[in-house]
Computed example of a mutant assay.
Amino acid sequence: MPFAPPRLCSCGNIVPSGERCACQIASDRARKARHDRRRPSARERGYNNEWRKARAAYLIAHPYCVRCGKPASHVDHITPHKGDDRLFWDRTNWQSLCAHCHNSTKQREERQQVQQ
């Protein structure tokens, strides 16, 4: 199996193929921390006890991921609600997703929609 050669990071370190430099990891952590400081808490965004009860009931009624068919663990808003209470509680805007589909596939799609 062929291997890619190590690469030179912008900070000057030599990084093995397929790995990230420590400076890149630190930069990502700092960027995410800046974002989290500005972001309202989950409770402030509507994810409270009432949501937890509704989410649990929805997962009982829809136990499988709509994308891959594995057991679902997340209730996702198909259209991001962005603070709109009507859209937040609209059950036709909900879908059951497994952790993988929610945390990788769906997030990637939402990032691409924002960039377009």
Rank of each mutant, 00 (worst) to 15 (best):
70 K>C: 08
115 Q>S: 12
97 L>G: 01
39 R>C: 09
92 T>N: 07
5 P>D: 12
14 I>H: 11
2 P>Y: 13
89 W>M: 06
29 R>V: 14
93 N>P: 02
80 P>Q: 06
101 C>L: 04
84 D>Y: 01
55 R>A: 03
26 A>Y: 02
8 L>E: 09
39 R>D: 00
38 R>I: 08
34 R>D: 09
92 T>H: 02
63 P>F: 08
107 Q>E: 13
76 D>H: 13
91 R>E: 09
98 C>E: 01
99 A>G: 13
114 V>E: 10
72 A>K: 01
38 R>L: 15
5 P>E: 12
70 K>W: 02
84 D>N: 15
22 A>G: 11
85 D>Q: 14
11 C>G: 09
28 D>V: 15
107 Q>R: 14
39 R>K: 14
47 Y>F: 14
39 R>W: 03
14 I>K: 11
26 A>K: 13
74 H>K: 13
33 A>F: 09
92 T>I: 00
7 R>C: 11
53 K>E: 12
42 A>M: 12
32 K>T: 10
22 A>R: 05
12 G>K: 08
54 A>K: 06
16 P>S: 14
93 N>L: 01
28 D>E: 07
62 H>L: 09
63 P>Q: 06
63 P>M: 06
31 R>P: 00
91 R>W: 00
81 H>Q: 05
94 W>T: 01
92 T>L: 05
109 E>H: 06
5 P>I: 10
100 H>E: 06
98 C>D: 02
96 S>R: 02
88 F>A: 02
23 C>I: 03
9 C>E: 00
72 A>M: 03
86 R>P: 00
70 K>L: 09
10 S>R: 15
85 D>Y: 08
24 Q>C: 13
53 K>V: 15
23 C>H: 05
78 I>Y: 07
68 C>A: 04
45 R>H: 03
85 D>H: 10
54 A>P: 02
103 N>F: 00
64 Y>P: 03
13 N>G: 12
18 G>W: 06
41 S>W: 01
116 Q>H: 13
32 K>D: 08
25 I>F: 05
27 S>G: 13
27 S>N: 10
29 R>D: 07
30 A>G: 10
89 W>E: 03
22 A>V: 08
81 H>V: 03
63 P>N: 08
52 R>E: 11
63 P>K: 05
52 R>A: 15
8 L>G: 05
12 G>Y: 07
70 K>E: 10
52 R>F: 12
116 Q>W: 09
116 Q>R: 14
99 A>T: 06
69 G>C: 07
19 E>K: 15
21 C>M: 03
81 H>A: 07
31 R>H: 09
33 A>Q: 12
4 A>P: 05
115 Q>W: 08
34 R>H: 12
49 N>R: 15
9 C>T: 01
26 A>C: 08
93 N>M: 01
6 P>M: 11
64 Y>F: 15
50 E>N: 15
38 R>N: 11
5 P>Q: 14
76 D>N: 09
54 A>F: 01
35 H>C: 13
103 N>I: 05
34 R>W: 08
94 W>Q: 01
82 K>F: 09
59 L>S: 03
84 D>V: 05
61 A>S: 14
72 A>C: 08
34 R>C: 11
75 V>P: 02
91 R>D: 00
42 A>Y: 05
77 H>G: 01
50 E>Q: 15
9 C>P: 00
43 R>C: 10
88 F>K: 01
105 T>C: 05
96 S>I: 04
113 Q>Y: 08
111 R>Y: 09
48 N>P: 06
25 I>D: 04
26 A>W: 00
83 G>Q: 06
